[in-house]
Nucleic acid binder design. Sequence first.
DNA 1: GCATTTGTCTACCACTCGGTAGACGAGTGT
DNA 2: ACACTCGTCTACCGAGTGGTAGACAAATGC
Lengths: 225, 225
Amino acid sequence: MATARSTRSDVSKQILEHATRLFAAHGFVGASLRDIAKAVGIRKPSLLYHYPSKDELRRRVLEQMLAHWNETVPRLLKAATSGQEQFEAIATETVNFFVADPDRARLLLREMLDRPDEMRPLVEAHVQPWTKIMCDYITKGREQGRVHADIDPEIYVAHMINLVVCGVAMLDTFAALTPGGGAPDQHAATQRHVKELLRVARAALFIDPALRLDAEFESPSSPSK
Amino acid sequence: MATARSTRSDVSKQILEHATRLFAAHGFVGASLRDIAKAVGIRKPSLLYHYPSKDELRRRVLEQMLAHWNETVPRLLKAATSGQEQFEAIATETVNFFVADPDRARLLLREMLDRPDEMRPLVEAHVQPWTKIMCDYITKGREQGRVHADIDPEIYVAHMINLVVCGVAMLDTFAALTPGGGAPDQHAATQRHVKELLRVARAALFIDPALRLDAEFESPSSPSK
DNA sequence: GCATTTGTCTACCACTCGGTAGACGAGTGT
DNA sequence: ACACTCGTCTACCGAGTGGTAGACAAATGC
């Protein structure tokens, strides 16, 4: 009755993980069922026993990623009370969600390119609650003169999501080619790019630094510089 | 001797155009030679007569796009004299280049996802002169206190290029889902998103609006709003 | 006028794709 | 002990892939 030690649900999960990775790396058409099965260590018909078709597997991969999103973000948001805290929580947690596994960003990006008509309502439904919070907050800030008057909240939010998703999708590429920092290891370079994503998102909002929502720009971890 | 009225170079060009469009829409593996040939109105072997292999066709498509870039941007840059004018010219012209044909952005994005190791040096070589101008200008602005001290010029430029390329690649999708503006037609929505791209790129740079390089934010075409 | 080049075509190739049929063995319930 | 389910396998299928061989017709060169 209980799941045997290394049977169904375990293999299904492995398939899902490798499928996510390979779809993200090579695209849906570029990653074959044989490749995925080989990565898992089984044969293709065994894979099709767990997921009846490649397209169904694709849907499950997406579904799983969005489920992760839905269980991660609300938890983080609960702690936030003020509008500013909510805004910051959504922004940082969105970045963290994708940075934690850049394949999510690459997968999402590829699907948006390959199947925009299918993905648009799907994504819209999943981000709508959070974009609404951010839009309301921006609108309020705009009325109070804290946020630049030219900003259309929805357009801003759309482009910031795009900035984050695409920025994370390209993180490895970016981190590989930043020579100037003096930080030779990949991880530090990645960290700087992540910080830049958040910085741009904040900076794009405000008309006057004295009126910024956060008291001061997040200083580098060592305040010497 | 001269090219016949509708022969070789003409067909080759048509192949290149349709290949660009289909690679951008469906990816390299997702667009078959038969599809491309059918779009042109010929059969597959005829296509392979003009381009000896699919991979060679891909290289030529990329090469053509980068050639367009190389002949477009320097022309625009020649008119600019001051550092600020150069900066503005590069930024706006980069946006215009991709907006003029969003397939360029989609193609570039897909290739960066599919073949990052091949694309990184290729892109780097083509954008290096322009990013250097922008980086130098930002560095100068930073020393003069006009630009935020946290900004690493190279990281900023990398993310702004990413913002523009990915933003334009998603333009149609974004324009389709912006309900709030009251501008029902697609073109107006696109224009607003393009404007947002440039606005973010500028806003992310400056620490104080009084010190912004452009005297004031570009107001909407009708100054009423 | 005739040979040659140019560009397209039909027919075919080996290969890979997603998906199916059915054998087989290990457990499991009774 | 036996029937049955579960999960995997080998073998195969039709369809579609990139690419090739060679026939053929229209220009082109001389």
